[in-house]
Design a protein around this nucleic acid. Sequence first.
DNA 1: CTGAAAGCGCTAACAC
DNA 2: GTGTTAGCGCTTTCAG
Lengths: 336, 336
Amino acid sequence: MPTIEDVARLAAVSTSTVSYALSGKRPISAATRRRIEAAVAELGYRPHAGAKALASARSEVIGLMVPMRAGIDVAVIMQFAGGVVLRAREHAHDVLLLTQDDLEGLERVTDGAMVDALVVMDVEADDARVPILRRSKQPAVLIGLPRLAAGLSCIDLDFEAAGRLAALELASLGHRDIALVGSPPEVHERHTSYAERVTRGFLTGAAEAGVAARAVACPATPNDVDDVVDRLLADAPGLTGLFVHNERALPHVLHRLREHRRSVPRDLSVIALCPEETALSQQVALTSIDLPAHTIGSLAVDMVMARLTDSGYPAETRLLAPTLTTRASTRAPGGH
Amino acid sequence: MPTIEDVARLAAVSTSTVSYALSGKRPISAATRRRIEAAVAELGYRPHAGAKALASARSEVIGLMVPMRAGIDVAVIMQFAGGVVLRAREHAHDVLLLTQDDLEGLERVTDGAMVDALVVMDVEADDARVPILRRSKQPAVLIGLPRLAAGLSCIDLDFEAAGRLAALELASLGHRDIALVGSPPEVHERHTSYAERVTRGFLTGAAEAGVAARAVACPATPNDVDDVVDRLLADAPGLTGLFVHNERALPHVLHRLREHRRSVPRDLSVIALCPEETALSQQVALTSIDLPAHTIGSLAVDMVMARLTDSGYPAETRLLAPTLTTRASTRAPGGH
DNA sequence: CTGAAAGCGCTAACAC
DNA sequence: GTGTTAGCGCTTTCAG
């Protein structure tokens, strides 16, 4: 592989001129720049990433921690990751992939200067990564809200508002008895914050609107979903509105309702909290609150880059307002 | 951050001794090693990745190209990626994430020595990455089969054998008229090799067994799936066996069959080609040929590491034999 | 079994 | 607008 020195020689300039021409960090005459570009092209020169990182104290890589355990909502994860990678490339950065639980890996890449910044997904209330991130010199942004976010940037959908929005929407359609089919028990047990926030928002919204509401956790396997739905219908015979925040359970919930001869939306209105694609690929096009995972991933990168570029840039918490799109799964109760 | 020099000073040895103690590349006396370990622990020393890469010409990172375009089978992708990341860590390597279509990124990371090796997923017949990989100095392993694999390692499920296995299984149960519901049209258009291989295997197997067979491509959206199923049932009124290789369409296929009052497995036997988890999370537990994506990811890393460790290690193509697990969705035709 | 020292390829003062 | 050069932190000969 050619080095910067080869380029310099061929262009008949010094290595520093090549370096500056490539980085744009100081003005270079048009003629010189042209010769350098020609030399670069002719040799097929690429800067050595390690050498660059060593000399500049910047790796131009951002770390991304993604949950890989089974039972995770894969579609959402992929959208986050896609948003992160695409946006990182637009900022001329690469992405190093770490798994959620790899705490030692987190320390390795931060202390070893492999990454300039971090994006971590699926944050829990008392996330073990938070203290590590706090003491690392790299900026980080969390997707999700830990209990103590001080000093760290966070971004997420405003899940509490989303829960509330769903409850109010159902109430305003005239439903008086509604329920939330929420995240799997494991997610609650981990105190992943979105699960609790959705629940709180939903129940609060229902209370405000004066309608009866309940919230249940829901595993993802077909049989377990059936049980949850069966129990719900038994416990709340007057139920007419459902809010589902559980992508894996969603198809099974809809299926079980059909087996109970409860037609959507005639007998039961359903709102889902999921990516648009998911809402559209069910049997009935679902009224949904969008989970804009791709956008959140992109914004997370923007936030982290802002802090990288401008070291005075403050940490911030951003909660995206939920938006509801009405489709074919909701209407007023009582056969219209 | 402490450097190797700080460690050396504290342990009262030279930097080279620290380096060798850490790498194990030459024998170190027990006493010296102990002092070095103590110093490392006390200082919280972590080698600087860039410096290491520069001096050793090894980044200890492997690149992973994953498809992020919409319409991809996300669950399978995540399993591959999970297998790759976990196994890479076991080989003390990190993973750099690249998107499928980022050819310029591929050249950047190989020529810039960001990665020591590459794993690329979802290979097409005339994949544009193949020539780039061939001329890069890093070993690569492809998940999938390009037309010309010479010099590159490949690994994949033996999709042709899988297709054949499904046809023979259905035939041996007594089905005389069977069909393959295959990948979406886009996948065929890209000439992603597994799609063609499954088809060929399925039709060949059916011919061998002397049963009627047809193969159709299948989009993933509910309505399109309905159309495909409708047409299939109209064209082949005597159809009693179905082989589905399309994870996203799978639930909709099953749903549409139900709407046609075709009970599985009473009226129609169904075999799926998908990860076990998917087969188990349908309404009926499906007889399936496993797509061991996690295992393939792990093996891909093993293969690439073998070539990294031992530069004489030859390129090879590995096709994993398919295995079929009988569950509740298959039986002999004709109401038993 | 251990040390000294020469780079690895690039950046960023510091010169002019 | 351009050149010189001293590192960045590590690995790895070469010496002992």
